[in-house]
Simulated scan of single mutants.
Amino acid sequence: MLRPTGLMMYPMESMDMRWFVRGLVSSLLGLSVGFSVAFIATPDPTGLFPIVVGLILTVALTVIFYAGIDRVAPSESE
């Protein structure tokens, strides 16, 4: 019979949730701002162009927000 050893598959010390939370927040911000700007800049609600512009803006803004979150709220205390 096998006994649990108390070891988890991923120890909490090696699991850093900050990157996940930063990625999730920056993705949501990039998605909302990117598609809002795309539909305002290219007001064709039935076309493919606003969707493509929205996706491009979402990716660009997600990267910018991801890098900027650490400058606004540093994760490491000095």
Rank of each mutant, 00 (worst) to 15 (best):
P11S: 11
V37E: 00
L55N: 05
V52L: 06
S32Y: 10
A60K: 05
I56P: 00
V37M: 03
T58F: 03
G23Q: 07
G34H: 00
P50I: 04
F39D: 04
L31G: 11
G23T: 11
G54S: 04
F35R: 03
L29C: 08
L24P: 07
D16F: 10
P45N: 08
S26G: 10
E13V: 14
L24Q: 10
T42P: 01
V59N: 02
V25K: 01
G54D: 00
G54P: 02
M12G: 10
P45R: 06
G54Y: 00
D44V: 12
V53L: 09
I51T: 07
I56H: 01
V33M: 03
L48F: 09
L28H: 08
S27E: 08
F39Q: 04
M8I: 11
F39P: 05
L24D: 07
V52P: 01
M9C: 11
F35K: 03
L48N: 06
F49S: 07
S14P: 08
M15Q: 14
A38R: 00
D16M: 13
S26A: 15
E13W: 11
L28K: 07
F35H: 08
L31T: 13
G54T: 04
M15D: 12
V59M: 06
I40C: 05
D44T: 11
P11N: 12
A38H: 01
L57S: 01
F39M: 09
S14F: 11
M9L: 15
S32M: 13
L24F: 14
A41L: 14
L24E: 10
L57A: 04
G47P: 10
T46W: 07
M15A: 14
A60T: 11
S36W: 11
E13M: 13
I40Q: 09
A60E: 06
R22V: 13
L24C: 11
M8L: 15
G30C: 05
D16Q: 14
